[in-house]
Write a protein that binds this DNA or RNA. Structure first.
Lengths: 199, 199
DNA sequence: CATGTTTTTGACAGCATGTCAAATATCTAC
DNA sequence: GTAGATATTTGACATGCTGTCAAAAACATG
C-alpha cells in the first residue's frame, strides 16, 4: 500500500473551519484543498464526497461542543448552570473573526427538502442528533435542579423551551450581530423560567 | 420598444415558490425559467441577477405575511392574539408539500459572511427588516395588553423573547418536522409570559 | 412604411462537484 | 535485495450553475 500523505484529523479540523465560516454550500472543495494542501482528488478518494467530509468534520465538532456544554452545566446553582450554558452558547456563535454563527443551525437551514424526502438525510440526522443530545443534557440539569428545589416546572417542557431559544439566538445572531442583545435575551429566558429573584 | 412577453408579478410569485421550497442557493435560474416559461436570459435582462430577483420576490412575500400577522394580532384578548400569532407562524412554516419551512430564517442562515462584510448585505437587511417589523407588531400588542391589565412585564423584552422563539421554531421545524411539538412549545411560551391560568 | 429601442435568444466564460484512468510510491513476500 | 500488489495521487473530463454579450426579433412611433 501507499501511505497517505496527509493527517486525517488535520483535514477534518481545517475543513470544518471552512464549513463553519462559509457554510457547507459556500465552502468549496477547492478552498479546502488549498487550506489543507491536499489535492481535491485526494479528498474525494479519502472521504467520498463533500457531504461525507462534512459529516465527519461535524461529528468531531459535535463531540467537543457537547463535552463543553456538559461541563458548563455541571457546577453551581441551577441559575449558574443555565447562565454558563447560555454564555457558552452565545460565545460559540460569536467566535471567530468575523463571527461564524451556529454551524448546526446554519447546516440545518441549508438542507434541501424537509424531513423524510431530501438527499441529505444523513446531515439532518446529525444536526437533529446534536440538538436532541443538548436538550437531554438541559433536561437532566433541570430535573436535578427540581429535586433540589431550585426549579418547579416541567423539566421536559422547559428544556424544549431553552433549546428553542438557543436556536432563535443563532438566527438573531445572523440577522443583527448584536451580541449584547443575545445575552439579554438569554438572561430574560432564565428569569422567565426560574423567576426574576433568587432562583 | 418591444413589449415584455411575461407578467412581472407572475414571475415573482413563481420564483418565490422555488426559493421557498429549495432555498436561494438551491433554486436555480434554470428551474425558475422552466416554471415561468421565461428564458433564463430574459430573467437576467429583467431582474439583473438571481439575488435581485429574490429580493423583489421576498419583498412581495414580506408584505403579505406582515399584513396577515397584523390581522392575527388584532382581535380578542392578549392570549388569543398571541395564540393566533403563533398559529399563523407555525402554519406558515408547515405550508406546502413537503412543508417549506421559514423562508426568512432559511435565507438568513444561507448568507455568506456575518453583518458588516458579506456580499449579500441587501438580503440580510431585508430579512432583518421583516424580523424587526414583526417584533414591533408584537411589542405594540403587548403594550396595549399591558394597558388593559392583561400583561404585566416588559413589552420590549417579551417581544424579543417571542421573536426569538419563533426563529427557534423555524429551526426545530427543519430538524424534526414535528408540528405538534412546535405548537406545544408555542403554547408553553404563552403560558410563561402570561401565566398558566386565565391570562 | 421606415426607424429606433427594448426584449429575446443562443453561445460563451468561469467555477463548482464528482468521476475516472493513468502514474506514482510504499508495503509485503519471497 | 528485488518484484509484485495495492492504495494514493494527479490531471483531464463531464455536467450544471451564474452571469455576460452580441446578434436577432418584435413592437412603438414618426
Amino acid at each position: 500500500m501507499r501511505p497517505r500523505e496527509f493527517d486525517h484529523d488535520d483535514v477534518l479540523r481545517i475543513a470544518f473551519d471552512q464549513f463553519w465560516r462559509n457554510g457547507v454550500r459556500g465552502a468549496s472543495m477547492s478552498d479546502i484543498a488549498r487550506d489543507t494542501g491536499v489535492q481535491r482528488g485526494s479528498l474525494y478518494n479519502a472521504f467520498g464526497s463533500k457531504e461525507a467530509l462534512f459529516l465527519q468534520a461535524y461529528e468531531r465538532y459535535a463531540g467537543d461542543y457537547l463535552a463543553a456544554l456538559q461541563k458548563a452545566l455541571g457546577a453551581g446553582s441551577l441559575r449558574k448552570r443555565l447562565t454558563a450554558f447560555f454564555d457558552l452558547t452565545v460565545t460559540n456563535f460569536r467566535s471567530g473573526t468575523p463571527p461564524r454563527g451556529c454551524p448546526t443551525t446554519r447546516g440545518l437551514m441549508e438542507l434541501g427538502a424537509a424531513e423524510g424526502e431530501g438527499l441529505d438525510e444523513d446531515a439532518r440526522q446529525a444536526f437533529a442528533g446534536l440538538i436532541s443530545r443538548i436538550t437531554a443534557l438541559v433536561q437532566d440539569t433541570l430535573s436535578a435542579g427540581a429535586e433540589r428545589g431550585e426549579f418547579n416546572g416541567n423539566p421536559a417542557a422547559a428544556a424544549l423551551h431553552i433549546i428553542t431559544v438557543t436556536r432563535g439566538l443563532a438566527v438573531l445572531e445572523r440577522a443583527f450581530g448584536d451580541e449584547p442583545q443575545l445575552r439579554k435575551i438569554a438572561a430574560h429566558t432564565i428569569d422567565l423560567l426560574l423567576g426574576r429573584t433568587g432562583g
